[in-house]
Write a protein that binds this DNA or RNA. Sequence first.
DNA 1: TTTTGAGTTGTTCGA
DNA 2: GTCGAACAACTCAAA
Length: 436
Amino acid sequence: MKTKTAVFWFRRDLRLTDNCGLFHALGDAHTVLPIFIFDTHILDQLPANDARVTFIYNQLVQIRTLLQKKHNSSLAVYHGDPFEVFTQLLDEYEISTVYTNHDYEPYALTRDKQITELLASKDITFSSYKDQVIFEKNEVLKDDGKPYVVYTPYMKRWRSLFNYKKHAVSFESESMLDNLIQDTALPFPDLSKIGFRRSEIEVPSFDISTGLIDNYKNTRDFPGLLKGTSHLSPHLRFGTISIRQMIQKAYAGKEDTFLKELIWREFFMQILWHYPHTTTRAFKAQYDRIDWRNDPEEFEKWKNGNTGYTMVDAGMRELNATGLMHNRVRMLVASFLCKHLLIDWRWGEAYFAEKLLDYEMSSNVGNWQWAAGSGVDAAPYFRIFNPITQIDKFDKDRSYCNQWVPEANGAPMTLPMVDHKMARERCLHAYKVALS
DNA sequence: TTTTGAGTTGTTCGA
DNA sequence: GTCGAACAACTCAAA
């Protein structure tokens, strides 16, 4: 006889505490089967040593170990097309309801629609919850009901709507985990079975101590500082921490710069929701008229950190070595690619998507369009970062440059691939032509 | 409908 | 070295 159970589907919410969908599943159902699916539609696009797959895998191992030790349960992990996995699950179990948390990216929306229809054909409900943001989709709108496309008024409205008690509520599920299915031997393929091997790149742990938040405004712009930023982004990406708890901490701080960064994340998420075409097209349509040079050899130099501009190269080498790049330097390398080299922001966006541990479609697309000048609330086209003076402003002691480009010996340039003044004027011209 | 104020992160030039 | 203006008007949000 089939086992009767509800299902909780982990996706980008890889934690057992303060997990909204999991909390509801455990509260509603007597038996819950927790599952994760390594989705071949996503995995087949990735290299065999992708650091994000390694991170997810490690996190799943941790969750399984805890469930086995403390709750006489486990985690079922599958590898395949989610539609086929669910078809198989429907054979094996008598499923009452499938619980999960919302995922707003275009592919996820299509996938979830398919699964919803499959389940509906068996009279099974797909119950999805808001978990990865405080405000989603249409929750922060202008008085006329339309979405904000300028950050500052969005942020003000966000803050006016935020209710500490209501939105920073904790979904306490730990004590309810005994409602998980009593089976310690659920399927759990090893990494090689799903076609991957361990990456040497690891996700760093995060720090949002009071000191970090209180000093964030003064420390966040200096990539050479060991503890100037939080390293929160990969954890927010995969849900290994809860946004509600992070917002609580941000509100407890003396200074709101950190909170504002978390609001930027939600700003770009609602932009992607309302304007999904911006993944491939400029938000400001006239910017798609720019005659990009798109030189493949120059693109290679940029990717490999061989532009001859020390800070640009430091950033790209940091990305290639660690899967992360300091935010200040992300702006610089993005400006350099789009403006100095006149290479399409989509190329840069794609490379970041391949490399970044914290890759988030909404933030990546939003910030690349910001750098290119084509996005919502973007940098004006004539704002072209100077890759030399950025060092004097933000890496005066050269600690960052020296770490990644030691052969420069602190010099702002080695063998620059392009002359700054010439590139700047070339860019201004190309943008003026496109926008006239 | 009209008006008004404001808009993430910079650079260059000339006094 | 320091400072203000120019860069380019334009769009958005709110009253």
